[in-house]
Each structure stands twice: as C-alpha cells, then as structure tokens.
C-alpha cells in the first residue's frame, strides 16, 4: 500500500472505492432495507415509561453496552480499510480511540427517521424522551440534531462508506507514530471521495461533509464530559459493570 504512486491511477481509485464500500456493507450493524422495514415500529407509551423509570446508572450501563456493540462493528470496518492493518498497533489504537465514536455517530444517521425524529434502538424506534433517565438531555438533543443534519445530505451508502473511512483515517490525531503513512492513506481516500462525488455530480457535498467533522469532534467531547460527570457520581458502576472496551476507549 505505501508504495502506491501519487496521484493514484484511476484503477487504484476505483479499487479503493469498491473496497471501502464493501467493507462498510459487510460491517454495518443493520442493513438499510431492514431499517426501512422497521421504520414505523415505535416504542409504546408503556415501553417508553419503562426506559424513563430506569435509574441513571442502569440506563447508562444499558447505553454503554449498546454503544460498545456499535463500536465493535466500527473496529471491523477499520480493519478492512486497505492499509489500516499495515499501520503499527499504536496507530491503529490511536485512530480507533479518537475516531470510533465519530463513526458510530455518522452511522447512526442510517438508523434515524427524520419524519418523526426517532432512532433505532433495542429493536424499535424511539425519540430523545427514551433517553431521559441518562440525565444528559443536551447531549441527546445534539446527537439527534446531528443525525438530522446528516440525513439532510441524503448520502448514498457508497458516499457514507467513504466519509466514514475519512473520519477514521485522520492524520491530525495526537500521538500518531507514523503520521506520514496515515497522511498518505488519507490523501488517497480524499481522492476517492472527490472521484465519487464527481461521478455522482454532487461535488457540493464535499464542503458540507468536511464541515461535519468539527461537529463530530464536539459531540465526542461532550460525550466524554458527560461520562466524566457520571463516573464521578457512580464510580463503581463504571468500574464494575461497564463493558471493558467502552472503558478502554472513553475513560
């Protein structure tokens, strides 16, 4: 991979695009058709009440488990990005520690119904009220707003795949050992995205997508901030019942 000439040939670009799209498809937690079919399967009043009646720590634990599941699919996606496994373990971990939550948030927009502002969670669709007992309404509203704005871009699955790979392969992350190599991967992915948007006659999307990157970063900081608040109130819950992968990534 690192010996590819620059600019990459059209063949290389097309192969890279295909590979990223395949990786995205093979590591998506839910298929789009599946989500579409369940679009109007909403939680009942009683079910919503049951979520709202959970204690703060119960609901945090529940969401930490769900988030960790989503992250595991992102790890698989990362491993299938051409060149990722050629990076040193330290750099693979650095990119995932900083980028996996961002990719989860981008992917979440696939699970979002803008018509009624609900998200697919635990097998049905629910609004922000479902997450009331977490005690972080501002984070939930911000996450839902982000999903709304992503949906407004109406990305194809191919564009979504490319964007997710760009979010992950970010040479600006601190503590990278071989920044040059990450930079080369990123450069080729950017060429792929431009190529794809040009082909789709949607070049105006490029700027809109790059704008999303800073929103993603602020959402992730807010998540970490909320986790910090929670772990000060419930240190034992975090220590003893939170998924180990969640702790490795976010604490």
């Amino acid at each position: 991979y690192p010996y590819c000439p620059y600019p990459p040939s059209l063949l290389h670009i097309e192969e890279l695009c295909d590979s990223i799209v395949r990786s995205h498809r093979d590591t998506s937690q839910f298929r789009l058709e599946e989500l579409q079919a369940l679009r109007w399967k909403l939680f009942s009043r009683e079910e919503i009440h049951a979520y709202q009646s959970k204690s703060v720590d119960e609901m945090w634990q529940h969401c930490a488990v769900r988030l960790t599941e989503a992250v595991q699919y992102v790890v698989e996606f990362a491993k299938r990005i051409p060149g990722f496994r050629g990076l040193g373990q330290n750099d693979q971990i650095t990119l995932l520690k900083t980028g996996s939550m961002e990719v989860v948030l981008v992917r979440m927009s696939r699970c979002f119904n803008t018509e009624n502002s609900t998200v697919f969670f635990d097998g049905k669709f629910g609004s922000t009220e479902l997450f009331k007992s977490l005690g972080c309404g501002d984070l939930m509203v911000a996450v839902f707003d982000f999903a709304h704005s992503m949906c407004a871009l109406r990305l194809t699955e191919q564009q979504m795949a490319l964007f997710c790979s760009l979010v992950l392969i970010n040479p600006d992350r601190p503590c990278l050992e071989d920044r040059g190599r990450v930079h080369r991967m990123r450069r080729d992915l950017e060429v792929c995205l431009s190529h794809m948007l040009h082909r789709d006659n949607q070049e105006s999307l490029q700027h809109k997508l790059y704008q999303k990157v800073s929103v993603l970063q602020s959402l992730c900081s807010l998540h970490v901030e909320k986790l910090h608040w929670f772990s000060q109130r419930y240190p034992l819950t975090v220590h003893s019942v939170f998924p180990p992968l969640y702790k490795e990534l976010f604490t």
Binding site: V75, E76, R80, R85, Q89, I93, K97, P244
Partner: peptide
C-alpha cells in the same frame, strides 16, 4: 499495551 487489552485482541483477530 495492558491499557488496551480488548482493542489489541479485536485488532489481532483475523477478519471474519
């Protein structure tokens, strides 16, 4: 390395 035990394991598993 110890700090990211699970991530290490996930990264080392071959893709299924």
């Amino acid at each position: 390395k110890e700090k990211h035990k699970i991530l290490h394991r996930l990264l080392q598993n071959s893709t299924s």
